[in-house]
Amino acid sequence: MSDTPEIPDDDSLLAGEYVLGVLDLPSRRAAEARAEIDAGFASHVTFWEQRLFPLTRLVPAVPPPAELWQRLQRAIGANDNAATLRVWKATTAAALALAAGLAAFAFIPRQAPSLTIASLAPLNAGAPGFIARVASNGTVRVQALSAHPAPTGHDYELWALPEGATRPVPLGVIPPGGLSVAASHVTLPGGKLLVSLEPKGGSPTGLPTGPVLYGGVITKL
């Protein structure tokens, strides 16, 4: 059978090719853009979608990997404080208990400079990772005790957790050189300082979204 004569250009057929999925990327993009602004073309697209989409019945259903739902939950939780608070509570309830237990060893040894107000140890009670000191200008400087940059694409973020509070207050991302914060934010005897691992730039939600890695009890100035 001959494939001539040429079939004339036809918007409906172009829409059909778009819905069928045979167009290359530039043509797909062009068709999509056109459907946005051209109601006539958009109605051709709708025509074909309504008629061709039943073909999806021929494609076998496949259960997605479990981590897909976890990814989605993280993504949709990102803008919701109540949900994030639930996540924060669930993932850090144990961490907080540990942080409370840190009191015994988060106090700075007596020979340490008196200006140190907290050392932030891993919640599994390893060596301290960060230390908070009062600087000469009266601000409090939180610094890593050794160089251990956050993994690529992440930042460490500092949080204050006043005694008895359930919501930590964000104090900012800790740059490699350390972070200075106003003393009033951290002079909360009995409160805690926490460091969590967050996406680059810090938690988008105002609450920790990543693991709380370090914590320490704030001692008196």
């Binding site: 999925g21 999806t56 494609v59 076998p60 259903a61 496949v62 259960p63 997605p64 990997p65 981590e67 897909l68 739902w69 990814r71 989605l72 993504a75």
Partner: peptide, 24 residues
């Protein structure tokens, strides 16, 4: 819907990680 949608994406992208990205 996820099993149907993932099946659809997998049949087009042919790679589980890409299918997950599409559904996500």
């Amino acid at each position: 819907q996820s099993a149907r949608l993932y099946g659809l994406a997998l049949s087009i992208t042919r790679q589980p990680s890409l299918a997950s990205d599409a559904v996500q």
